[in-house]
């Protein structure tokens, strides 16, 4: 246990946001859920790969954007994730 690197505060926020998306996806219809999961997973993994981990300003921005998108997704009328498309 002592060897385990502790997660930083900002890392925990990102993981909590990811968890929030996955939890919200569970509430949608199965097909929608799969689609949301694959889009969200791709977006998080892509950003984890491409964003410099010390670029806090950008990570904070992505966190804020993600939180807003999550709030929208929590609306039961929202089934799609058009605003979350991964742009490369």
């Amino acid at each position: 246990m002592a060897s385990r690197p502790k997660l930083s505060g900002i890392q925990k926020q990102v993981l909590a946001l990811y968890r929030g998306f996955l939890r919200t996806a569970r509430l949608k219809a199965p097909e929608e859920r799969r689609r949301i999961e694959s889009v969200v997973s791709a977006e998080f993994h892509e950003n984890a790969r491409s964003v410099d981990r010390r670029n806090f300003v950008h990570i904070e921005y992505l966190l804020r954007r993600g939180k807003k998108q999550l709030e929208q997704l929590k609306n039961p009328d929202i089934t799609g994730l058009a605003t979350l498309e991964v742009k490369k």
């Binding site: 997660l7 890392q11 993981l15 990811y18 968890r19 996955l22 993994h45």
Partner: peptide
């Protein structure tokens, strides 16, 4: 696994 994969696994 990375930390995102770990979130998926734990969920």
């Amino acid at each position: 696994l990375d930390s995102l994969d770990t979130v998926e696994v734990v969920m």
